[in-house]
């Protein structure tokens, strides 16, 4: 029997800013088909991990494999990416539909222009995130939650097998959050893999089935039931007590 390679495999990944380590020797495997949360305190290197995998930061050491093949410009195209909402200028003169269409800009060469299939794909993604009514809005008119949904839709049209999301629920209201979680579930049902930076420890067990606990080095990773233990959380967050007061196992849905 041939075992399937993991969606993402990170080996000995070390990233430094000058001589200050941001990630120390991280080994992480993300099996295909899981929803994995990356959890850790501020400055733990969560965004750095995502950016290093996406090739946006040069690691000091280590390797990244995507579906069993070394990550390069070609492999990176197979990853859908949801950056932090604050990473762009929302006053840019463009519409919601246009931003979502950017998810398909990398298909085809210099001469290829958007065709009807692209347009349909964009419309479907907008419907998935409940934004079809706002498709022709200028992006500066969107709320934080709507901006986040636009980014999610843009990742959806990338039609990837692996999605990396940097705080997809940041600044999102509760209702939107639920509908976005439903989108993630649907991705999982389609056999896709999601790795998302997540801030809220109370909802993490409910939204995700796997977890990676990160604080510069990887503390633990694995299925939620085993890895998301109080002991591991204490090690990850140290003295700075996180906002879980009840044992996380009881809040898990």
């Amino acid at each position: 029997m041939q075992t399937m390679p993991p969606a993402l495999e990170v080996n000995d990944l070390t990233v430094a800013y000058r001589d200050k380590p941001v990630l120390w020797d991280v080994d992480l495997q993300v099996p295909t088909g899981v929803l994995m949360a990356v959890v850790g305190p501020n400055g733990a290197g969560k965004t750095t991990l995502i950016k290093a995998v996406m090739g946006l930061m040069q690691p000091a050491a280590g390797s990244v494999q995507v579906f069993g093949e070394p990550a390069g410009r070609q492999q990176v195209r197979r990853i859908g990416y949801v950056p932090q909402r604050t990473s762009v200028d929302w006053d840019f003169p463009t519409s919601v539909r246009d931003v979502v269409a950017m998810g398909r800009y990398n298909r085809g060469g210099l001469w290829r222009r958007a065709d009807r299939r692209d347009a349909e794909r964009v419309a479907r993604a907008l419907a998935t995130v409940d934004m079809e009514d706002l498709a022709d809005r200028q992006i500066s008119e969107l709320s934080g939650g709507q901006q986040q949904r636009v980014f999610l839709a843009r990742a959806l049209v990338q039609d990837s097998d692996l999605y990396l999301m940097d705080e997809p629920f940041q600044g999102v209201d509760a209702v939107t959050e639920q509908s976005m979680v439903a989108v993630l579930r649907r991705l999982q049902e389609q056999g896709r893999t999601v790795l998302a930076v997540h801030h809220d420890l109370r909802t993490a067990p409910a939204y995700f089935d796997w977890v990676a606990l990160l604080n510069v080095r990887l503390i633990a990773s694995g299925p939620m039931a085993t890895a998301f233990s109080e002991c591991n959380l204490r090690e990850t967050f140290g003295g700075s007590a996180p906002e879980w007061t009840t044992p996380p196992a009881t809040t898990a849905a």
């Binding site: 070390t14 001589d19 020797d25 000091a60 080095r217």
Partner: peptide, 16 residues
């Protein structure tokens, strides 16, 4: 810095 960092990295790698 790259060399110094690499030495630290090797030590940590072996430690981990």
């Amino acid at each position: 810095q790259r060399v110094e960092f690499a030495v630290r990295m090797l030590v940590i790698h072996l430690f981990q």
